[in-house]
Design a protein around this nucleic acid. Sequence first.
DNA 1: CCAAAATTAAACATTAATGTTTAATATTAT
DNA 2: ATAATATTAAACATTAATGTTTAATTTTGG
Lengths: 130, 130
Amino acid sequence: MQSSAGARGGSADARLDAVFHALADRTRRTLLARLAVRPAMITELAKPFDMSLPAVSRHIRVLEDAGLVARNVDGRVHECSLAAAPLKRADAWLVYYRRFWQGNLEALERYVDSEGGAGRRTAARGRHGR
Amino acid sequence: MQSSAGARGGSADARLDAVFHALADRTRRTLLARLAVRPAMITELAKPFDMSLPAVSRHIRVLEDAGLVARNVDGRVHECSLAAAPLKRADAWLVYYRRFWQGNLEALERYVDSEGGAGRRTAARGRHGR
DNA sequence: CCAAAATTAAACATTAATGTTTAATATTAT
DNA sequence: ATAATATTAAACATTAATGTTTAATTTTGG
């Protein structure tokens, strides 16, 4: 697979940085949700937002750079579509922590035992103030 | 209980923003991985990093604000521990897109089924027997 | 009491992220 | 050829994010 436009290029860490950063914005998440329905062009994607077209255009660019959006230029129209592969990466990162909230204590206990650690449960620990 | 620093407070969107933003940094992801092993105090957490202690302290604060780290102050020592609940939120967001990379319809079915609880929809029940 | 230890607060310097508005660039349609 | 479309590029203004270094603050061990 060649390195074309978005997503690739950096280390695994840099790629995760890009993906999580792309997801850390409501507008961009909304764009992804929209693209999950079906592909659309920039103007169309921008319509629902109370924001200038260039601004949305750049949000899409961020998504594209993270590899989350693929772009197919046809004349003056740029058709964007969802490219979920990088989400798989995010999911793969996340899966490691799933055991901490799934209540699957067996896996956690097994792990803690193997570490011989002073592990405690990670539910809601004490409050804190500052 | 006042709404102090961590996690809650904002809208679902704001919370997701905070979580994804917190994850969009290698240092912070490394901190979480470390805390997944066992709780630790700030100084201890900072040691492995080639960065000043205050800098790490602030990374931890970002994680705390996202609700990903719980802090238990004991004297001058702040013991931090992983609080994975917000990751569940991120995971819940992500799961919607899982079908886009899993290529099979089982994932979609799993998703639709898991809609049960609050907003259950019966549409795709028993579509394609398996 | 006093110095060491554990942390955060302050004060700064830099760079990244976001939005806006106003061009500039291609493409198409008339 | 022109004008209308679809998009990005530029130029700016602002605010957020990160790091550093140098104080404060609060505890704790002697």
